[in-house]
Amino acid sequence: MRRFCKIEIKYHSINTTKIVLTIKSGLTHLGQYVQLMGRALTQPDRWRMFFKQYVTEMFQLGYNSIGIVLIISFFIGAVICLQIKLNIQSPWMPRMVVGYTTREIMLLEFSSSIMCLILAGKVGSNIASEIGTMRITQQIDALDIMGVNSANYLILPKIAGLMTIMPILVTFSVCAGILGSYATTLMGTTTVPELDEGFRYQFNQWFFWCGMIKAIVYAFIITSVSAYKGYTVEGGSVEVGKASTDAVVLSSILILFSDIFLTSMLT
């Protein structure tokens, strides 16, 4: 019996040291992240170079994601509409419930949070592997030697670029979702007037702005976290791969956490 207790205690103590170590490394990362952001979020050395990079990044991170955003949103909009029609609507429910629910789901959660989660996978891994490769091939050292603020030059245009383009992507996503639900009328499950009524029912403009605010916050999380992961890579291609996976996982988790905060704060 006594031996059993001893084992119990030992098992317990290993667990606590592990937890302490995890907390410690978490805090170290947080400190490094804040420091890096402090260097990145300053006035650019040359505005001309910044704007050039800014436009390039908007194109690369945003414009190239429009296709995937439109396709996913269109189909999800259609599927939500179908599901609600088939599973929720019944003779006791008002007619407009299909359109109303589809609109609220797209506006409140799908187009902002879920879309950003999907984009975290696409954009986050892209940023982390690009900056990580620059780190291991000494391109970042080369920038530093020239006296360029490498964090500012590389990271700020990405943050600014995605924060600009993300609200536009979210708007596109809402529109595509609504188009998708209209498309289901072609299958005969719903009718256009039915949907119209739902879409117009008690429209609250603030919900749209909530989506925009969320999109901007998530854009910052995705770019800054992925850039941090890439910027601090040490080693070779294996580490770059790991950094890009970590970037996606970490930014997704942070998006989900901040979704809870933002939702309770904004609505």
Binding site: T137, D141, A142
Partner: peptide, 10 residues
């Protein structure tokens, strides 16, 4: 500075 790996911006 010229790096061992040239370190050009690719």
């Amino acid at each position: 500075m010229i790096f061992q790996s040239a370190a050009l911006f690719d």
